[in-house]
């Protein structure tokens, strides 16, 4: 399992961000080029479109110990593939509505729209989400018991 504490014992969340290639990943690049910082806890996975994000990926991340998962896509109406982000929105709404039932706090997930021109917004979104997840604390509800066993 990942190490989630700093040397002084502070909680460091593990956050997985799925970013679409055309808007949000470019927005993240722009945040970088503009030197707009956000916590190193956020690790980005590039996908062609937010509609490529299978709900399975999110559950897998939580299962493997992620504390928060964020999905970023183009603003509604701006999808490079016309309708991909609408699919993502619907799928995520459905998935999120079932998370509590699955044993994951609903608040650990979020969908945000960030365009390629919104470096500032990308950094703000990530700062806010990381702060929010830090406050929520470690994701203990869904643990892969097999992993735990092998550690013992």
């Amino acid at each position: 399992m990942p190490v989630k504490t700093t040397e002084n014992g502070e909680f460091k969340p593990l956050i997985v961000a799925f970013c679409c290639n055309w808007c949000s990943y470019a927005g993240a690049d722009l945040a970088g080029t503009s030197r707009l910082s956000y916590p190193a806890d956020v690790k980005i996975i590039r996908v062609p479109c937010s509609c490529r994000v299978n709900p399975l990926f999110i559950l897998r991340a939580f299962q493997r110990g992620a504390d928060g998962v964020i999905i970023c896509g183009c603003h509604p109406g701006d999808c490079h593939y016309t309708t991909g982000n609408y699919y993502a929105r619907r799928r995520m709404t459905l998935l999120f509505s079932m998370l509590d039932y699955l044993g994951i706090e609903r608040k650990r997930t979020r969908v945000e729209w960030v365009s390629a021109a919104e470096g500032v917004r990308f950094s703000e979104v990530m700062n806010d989400f990381a702060k929010h997840i830090t406050e929520l604390g470690e994701n203990k509800k869904l643990e892969d018991l097999r992993c735990k066993k092998s550690l013992d």
């Binding site: 062609p48 479109c49 490529r52 299978n54 399975l56």
Partner: peptide, 26 residues
């Protein structure tokens, strides 16, 4: 165009996207 919408929609897991396959992202 490789958006991947079909890969998630497929109920049988038969659709996959080259270069961004389910296995790769997992």
């Amino acid at each position: 165009q490789g958006c991947g919408a079909c890969t998630v929609a497929c109920p049988s897991g038969a659709m996959d996207l080259k270069g961004f396959s389910t296995k790769q992202i997992m």
